[in-house]
Design a protein around this nucleic acid. Structure first.
Ligand SMILES: [Mn+2]
Ligand SMILES: [Mn+2]
Ligand SMILES: [Mn+2]
Ligand SMILES: [Mn+2]
Lengths: 241, 241
DNA sequence: CGACAAATTTAGCCATGCCTAAAAGTATAT
DNA sequence: ATATACTTTTAGGCATGGCTAAATTTGTCG
């Protein structure tokens, strides 16, 4: 019996770093900073530096790292990050649709389990769900080959006043914010219009077909992304919430 | 933001050791040896010694360890081991019943995922399945409180010739053996009778209502446990395969 | 330019959990 | 009772991935 071959498999930590780099480097080609990664991952900046050096050094390198100037993913690193992101979002959709989780409950379990999903399980979950396009928060699920439809979504706070928009996705990091959104009917697919009257980063909005405007706290508003009303209905016809 | 509180949570390794000790210490009170644990876990005996010392030393101790004389679980350790075993068997039942896994495919994924199942997920899976009593191989699933029905099952090789028995469970460690059993109709709940004619640990058996006896290789026979025909039908009426 | 603040990296540690090789204990068989 | 075989423990390492504290670099402002 062979002892234990410690093969160079991706660790949970490595996967979390790759996913964080994907999420923090905005437009393709941009770099993520050590500090931003540290904040996102809940570790110290010194730990980030150590990991980035390790990732940049290994044979098929996952990242391009320039000392003092941030890091970005190589194609191989991006592929791996998208694989983990696919696990995460498929799991959220699965926990929500098949196991009765509410949308504020799915994130934490998905964050842990995403690292331990075999190819077989990934495929069975996707098949069971009918190859879903988005997770419960409206985020697109990367395809098996890594394809990820780029949507022209912007933060609600950047949207022009008086122009009708549709909520495309909401941030899944704050459960209590999600519960409040649920209560207010703020979910992907719902129409929303920003009224004049911004005060201290709070927004006055009209939701769906309602007539009375509502004032959204900055915390809530900051978690909402939107796209133009007409484009969305064309691109995402298959989605139903 | 606090750095990272490395709390004394159960690690994957610790859970695997506890589960292995539970499985390898036969009747209550018996001890598991370092060598047996090493073989079961796929690590070296020296590593086992190190872990046993750590487990025996920590504050609410999980094991009673006597140098050179093996180890057994404390009540706390047994509770934790049963919790992990419950995760494992619930997962096997879930993968099999809800995601279309065959019974030879469930073990490996369950072995990995068992360590990352939250209480919430455990409960949702159990509810979705209607609180199943056994996994797909016939092994009983511990209840949430740790209760595990003791069944008087014995290895088929120990069963008396000519006395009708019912298969209670089969070993889940060898996928190819499971596929062969499937082909032969050897699964929990099926009647089986051992005929005279043991040769080199192979057994001559009659399966179900069939008339032609069949010779089982030692490999297959060693993975089958049985109970008396009448007892089982009373105790396990709810099970359907 | 030069000073300062913020970001980043280096240096040195620590815990976990595995390994090999060597030492020590246990059990059995003459 | 002792030699021998087998099991178990000790000793010394290594890899991963955190941490703190102390440099060092970068970028901005006067
Ligand atoms: Mn994660
Ligand atoms: Mn999400
Ligand atoms: Mn395991
Ligand atoms: Mn099983």
């Amino acid at each position: 019996m062979p002892p234990r071959t410690h093969l160079p498999v991706n660790t949970e930590s490595v996967d979390d770093y790759l996913k964080a780099i994907l999420e923090l480097s905005g437009p393709p080609g941009e770099r993520a900073t050590s500090n931003a990664l540290a904040g996102h991952l809940g570790v110290r900046a010194a730990s980030v530096t150590g990991m980035l050096q390790k990732l940049a050094a290994q044979k098929p390198s996952y990242v391009k790292y320039e000392k003092h100037h941030g890091v970005r993913l190589t194609p191989a690193g991006k592929m791996r990050a998208l694989e983990v992101l696919r696990h995460h979002r498929l799991l959220e959709r699965f926990l929500h649709d098949c196991l009765g989780y509410s949308w504020d409950e799915v994130h934490d379990d998905a964050e842990r389990l995403e690292h331990f999903i075999s190819e077989r399980l990934e495929d069975r979950i996707a098949a069971k769900l009918g190859d879903p396009q988005t997770d419960p928060h409206g985020h697109p699920i990367p395809e098996r080959n890594g394809a990820l439809p780029a949507r022209p979504e912007v933060l609600l706070s950047k949207w022009a006043c008086g122009v009708k928009a549709v909520i495309s996705s909401v941030s899944d990091r704050d459960p209590s914010a999600l519960r409040e959104m649920e209560r207010l009917g703020l979910k992907p697919g719902v129409a929303i219009t920003v009224e004049a009257g911004t005060r201290n980063a709070t927004l006055l909005v009209r939701i769906g077909e309602r007539t009375e405007p509502l004032r959204l706290s900055q915390r809530l508003a900051a978690g909402i992304s939107v796209i133009a009303a007409n484009r969305r209905s064309r691109q995402h016809r298959k989605i139903d919430y």
